[in-house]
Nucleic acid binder design. Sequence first.
DNA 1: GATGAATGAGACTTCATTCAT
DNA 2: CATGAATGAAGTCTCATTCAT
Lengths: 205, 205, 205, 205
Amino acid sequence: MQQNRSRVRQQRILDAALRVFSRKGFRDASVDEIASESGTSKGGVYFHFPSKDVIYLQLLDRTVARLRNKIEAAMAEHDHPIAKADAALLAVLRTFDKHATLARFFMVETLGAGRQFQSRMAETRAEFAGIIRQHLDAAVDQGIIEPLDTEVAAQAWFGALYEVITGWVLVRKPERLEETYAALRPLLMRSVGAEEIPLSALMES
Amino acid sequence: MQQNRSRVRQQRILDAALRVFSRKGFRDASVDEIASESGTSKGGVYFHFPSKDVIYLQLLDRTVARLRNKIEAAMAEHDHPIAKADAALLAVLRTFDKHATLARFFMVETLGAGRQFQSRMAETRAEFAGIIRQHLDAAVDQGIIEPLDTEVAAQAWFGALYEVITGWVLVRKPERLEETYAALRPLLMRSVGAEEIPLSALMES
Amino acid sequence: MQQNRSRVRQQRILDAALRVFSRKGFRDASVDEIASESGTSKGGVYFHFPSKDVIYLQLLDRTVARLRNKIEAAMAEHDHPIAKADAALLAVLRTFDKHATLARFFMVETLGAGRQFQSRMAETRAEFAGIIRQHLDAAVDQGIIEPLDTEVAAQAWFGALYEVITGWVLVRKPERLEETYAALRPLLMRSVGAEEIPLSALMES
Amino acid sequence: MQQNRSRVRQQRILDAALRVFSRKGFRDASVDEIASESGTSKGGVYFHFPSKDVIYLQLLDRTVARLRNKIEAAMAEHDHPIAKADAALLAVLRTFDKHATLARFFMVETLGAGRQFQSRMAETRAEFAGIIRQHLDAAVDQGIIEPLDTEVAAQAWFGALYEVITGWVLVRKPERLEETYAALRPLLMRSVGAEEIPLSALMES
DNA sequence: GATGAATGAGACTTCATTCAT
DNA sequence: CATGAATGAAGTCTCATTCAT
């Protein structure tokens, strides 16, 4: 029970930290602000977390995990690689659509947050690119697309998506991020030579 | 003479600032460090620039201008839109290859540098995406590629390139950025349905 | 308890600040000095006060309040306007006699402390002059003195007193400020045409 | 000739300094601002004056000398002590009326300008009070007023005048400082027991 | 003589972190 | 467990003064 209460507190702090980091960026966010936004005191924050850096890191982990879960859950509902890709793309767009705070935190603030997070961020990028690559490889193995440098392709896909989302965060156009799907999908598909697959074929999977 | 001396000093400070910002990021870079790295005193820096922000902004401007010049010079040597795209891509890769410092500054540090630079950064992204888009539009007009949402396509191209470069900055793999060209080129071309143009045809332009 | 501790600290800081400001003047007093003189750290000072300006302002307020209290307490013991004036004059002289630091702070340093305090200082002067005027008006109403421009008279009284005190602060002559009373009293009284009231008459009130 | 040109430059700098000090106070006025306001460069200022303090001091001297001259010239036109006092009072009011900048500099900024000017300021006050006292003594000698503590009286006169002028500088009421004369004069006169002298008698002197 | 670049000490302020209560 | 007071290092910026040109 005690442990439970403690975990709730931690969650509250992390939630508050996400908002504050998203609003101000890592350096300009103060622990004081996180404390008051989470309804605790500065001492309280330091009771649950050893440092501001660790809060940021845990937030990053949590964000990545959630995102990965969303993506994997979405992909699990399909068998065909292309359908999986489609589902993942939509899942990502919808998640950020719903959680603009998360988008800003993850897309805009993290890269420049400080040297101490950069290797972690590189890992994260590699992880997501790795997921993409893995499925591109599968598609190649299954003969669905022609062989290609899946490493660079995965990076490019990730980058294209990243940029579209970042642009949306910064400029807030179009109103809903999901609206970019219609243009993004064929672009990505064609880029790996998978444009000819009809949607109908995917629906059956 | 005075003016010249002053301009030389300013350049020296900007050069030093680029290195320091690239090493530490905006927030973690101290004016003291910029001063000593440029062989001046803190007061000297503030004699030439009114604030740290302004140094950063001028550096951003200078970087963007240089990059745009490189790109435009490279494109000017070709007529065919695809050849132009090719040349621009190579120019970008080679520039960052030679100036890893510039790459880190521009790719990694700027986005999260602080709220005060975000609108400028959004403009910058829009500017580069705009250049790409303009040429994609031309290609569509000339019947070289099928009509498509060039806005999103341009964003995606920019993002793909951005990500590949960022990955290289963070992980330093492959050793030379230019090596990614071989995989990146067909990917981008195919994404807009321009894969069938043979290189030989372009060489003649 | 916490609140109490905090208040004690604030008092200590204000007391130290009074001494430092009195010694050095606003601009030449450093927060560092205030901190060490109050047995705290610089951060401690800034925990309790948001800025050096605010410390100064609070000190000004506190000083004005104390002075006004002394004056009003002294006047409350008498009914006759002239006796009130007498009592107030003595109260002021004695207060500054006991607290030369206060005198220096209030008389010498504040006027030129900076543009940001000037309107407040003007209010303060107006406030004290207002008290004097109010009682001069009462004296006129009661037929004790002939009608006159009480606004200018009040200002002149305040100025005369101010100058005598300032001179004492700067030159420390005579040794005790109260010694000026004997000369000041008839001067002020005569200036408003009240010289003929014998002290014996006042003592009875 | 050369010397002349130099003196003109010095005057220009002093004039500019007066304006700047009057606007900003001693500490907030920068040598740069004085330089640009006087149409010179910082180096130029330092060629003519060894330090900012010295500029201030010379300005103080110049101001005091001018004021004293005005006063003495005004008094020289009369023989009767009371008439002299009258003339001096008017001269002071009119001078500051015409030169509000001078008034602000002399009345408001100097006292708190810094420890380094305080002894000089004390001398200055003593000097003016001394002039007043000297004439009060003469008036006593000539049997025009009853004996009294002329030292305190002179201080009080000076203070009363100082305060009225300061109030005018800070609040700018009444519009013209000279308007305070009508109320100030009888007040001062009565304070030393000289109220019964009719103006007509003075006019003849 | 004059200019403006350069210096460097020092100011205020912020804030992550620690700790007594 | 929680609070809020306290610390102290670090940061940006100012400016009187000096000095090379």
